[in-house]
Design a protein around this nucleic acid. Sequence first.
RNA 1: GCCCGAGUGGCGGAACUGGUAUACGCGCACGACUUAAAAUCGUGUCUCGCAAGGGAUGUGGGUUCGAUUCCCACCUCGGGCACCA
Length: 803
Amino acid sequence: MKKYEHNKIEKKWQKVWQKSKIYKTDIKKDKPKCYVLDMFPYPSGSGLHVGHPKGYIATDVYSRYKRMNGFNILHPMGWDAFGLPAEEYAIKNKMHPSIAVNKNIKTYKEQLSKIGFNYDWEREINTTDPKYFKWTQWIFLQMFKKGLAYESFEPINWCPTCQTGLANEDLEDGKCERCSSVIEKKPMRQWVLKITDYADRLLKDLDELNWPESIKESQRNWIGRSEGSLIKFPVLNSQFTIEVFTTRADTLFGATYVVIAPEHPLVLSLKEKISNWDDVMKYITATKNKSEIERTSEGKEKTGVQLKGIKAKNPVNGDELPVFIGDYVLAHYGTGAIMAVPAHDDRDFDFAKKHNLPIKQVIEPENLVVNKRGNLLEKAFTGEGVLINSQNFDGMRSKEVKLAITEKFGNKKVTYKIRDWVFSRQRYWGEPIPIIHCEKCGAVPVPEKDLPVKLPNVKSYAPTGTGESPLSAITKWVNVKCPNCKGPAKRETNTMPQWAGSSWYHLRYIDSKNQKELVDKNKDKYWSPVDMYVGGTEHATRHLIYARFWHKFLFDIEAINYSEPYKQLKNQGLILGSDGRKMSKRWGNVINPDDVVAQYGADTLRVYEMFMGPFENMISWSTESMIGSRRFLEKIWRMQEKASTKQSPEQIEKLLHKTVKKVTEDIESFSFNTAISAMMIFLNEVEKNTHINKKDLSIFLKILSPFAPHITEEMWNTNNKTKKSIHISDWPKYDPSKITEEFSNIAIQINGKVRDILKIATGSKEEEIREKALELESVKKWLVGKDIKKILYIKDKILSIVI
RNA sequence: GCCCGAGUGGCGGAACUGGUAUACGCGCACGACUUAAAAUCGUGUCUCGCAAGGGAUGUGGGUUCGAUUCCCACCUCGGGCACCA
């Protein structure tokens, strides 16, 4: 027999598949569809390491399996290629970013093709291709027309290193997610998308999605819905009121002061009445100069200044409360003002202690024995309970009081933590925002017929640092006529963030060459939503929220048919270096898939990555362990020697049906590791026997083929007369009658401990088993001098004797 | 601080709905083949014990004839949110 030469086999079949186009997206009308999608990569300069393809292997297995089960498969791939890394590479090497991007894409594509994926490359997309980003810009224009894209002048997050504004989602602990610089607040004009309009739907529709619970939970946290009340505190001797947001209306009687954010407009309005204006101004300026991280990390010490001369009236009892500004109150959340109840809120408690303000208890824990009340001199009691010191509400419970007080003194209000999406970047390598600024007409959308607005060539891609994009220096490009009044006007020079192109790419694959629409609605109806989406957890609160937002918007303007893009989501766990650290050049622990493929074969790499452990687990790479997968394939190869026209021995036939069942179920549930272990068990059984029937071998090859497409195709081809590829053959069905065993091993337990195993015909009567069990020496000796209290029987499994 | 998820051999891990814990693979040890090595094949491999038997699924308790699985408390690790009223 020939040796197993993976190099020859893999190259040969990859060529054949490409030529015969067996992976081309099929659209036979009578078949069901399955859209299997990978999170498309950002083609960086360093190429792939073995961790990257893990998710791609899983979708490859899954889509091959589904194809063999009679589905039309859409399984495409593309490139998310706008963004800072390419731009920085270009600045350093003085070349246009698109040249760098094309070079990197070529490398990636070569690396991927060696692994033998079944992508339909005819649908390849690239977010930096004008034919693609024409539609990204088009979507922006639709949002603009609906008032969902607007200009804002609020201070935003500014990264001093990347020299661009950033969205909230781009920060990590107050630092830039990319470069870890401390983020500054910078007041500047920016484009913002009104994602907050969709907050409620983004939250509610999560319930319907078949996604990992942890991702849904992350999104819920990020959206941060909370139900509370708005309550107005009139400012004494003025026409102003301070409106506060609280989730604890039941503690209203315990309010002893009011705090408003330093940025709150009311502060200026009250200027005339404030006797210590200089101190107040000083505090406001100091706050402005602090970064977010400084504001929250100074030991969380609560600072603030009283607005002397101002009093606010508590609507429930007429108490006249002092008013402070303090930066522990956030301007952008709720109303930017709070009523402070130091007895029942930790933060208010700290502030009250520091400024010597009264602490008034109004809630008593419900059960004093269980919930021993803390000493209010040391700690706030933040739980709910029974009211005291609250006039006619005394004795009532928190829950009912919340409702009653809100009804009487305020209004219900829902707030969210999520904030509108800061959408402009002051960098070169992104989609230009298709807006023209005219002195007379204001912000005017570029007419749709003029899309795409392409990027001009510039001498320097480097950011200007002034808050203007490098595009602003290209006067030829910037100066245009207003589409409205034909007067002189200027182009918007900010570009879109990295996340724009990936927010709708799943739709473009469906109809990647359409010049008239972003997607044909009928095609969308057939292929959407994505049935299986696979990628890393790091996208939980960015890409996966943005894409849902855009998708819902496109649904609302009736451009598409469904309101959620990704029906089912799976996360792959990271592959770490063999030292347990993240694979990185820095640690020198990077394994290149090219090397693994050359030395051990693509099939070995694929089987190993699926066998390593549960798909979502983070596991260290081990070349030593991988050799086990190579051995497995070599043994499979040698199985050909045992192939015969004789019928397989009975135990092989039986085990084959069991294995088909197991592998089928495991692929459906993404339990690839146990699917492979079941095939290993089958292989071990064949090795114990003299022969295996050729047809049975073919069945086995079929269930292995999604994992190891090359070796199975080769063996299929030599053992069958057909020219048809194994990958478009039918998935085998198992016969349930062949799975049942003739004999069962029944564990005989005494008080829960196994004392013997009884081999007996499956389906035997309990009586018979009981009799036989009680005759066993190993059982008898435990029963001497004991009474049997009870005997339990679990069919074909256990006989439990209780003494 | 709040909210999720997870802790099983030397290692990756398996165990259906509460029913024989440690499948499968790696590693290791011994043996066969070989002048030798590699490769391959075979046997063994949680732990204490000569054995009968006992003990082990992060720790401590509980429910049950029976718990890796269910309940309570705690510890450790991973992730999300975090001065969000």
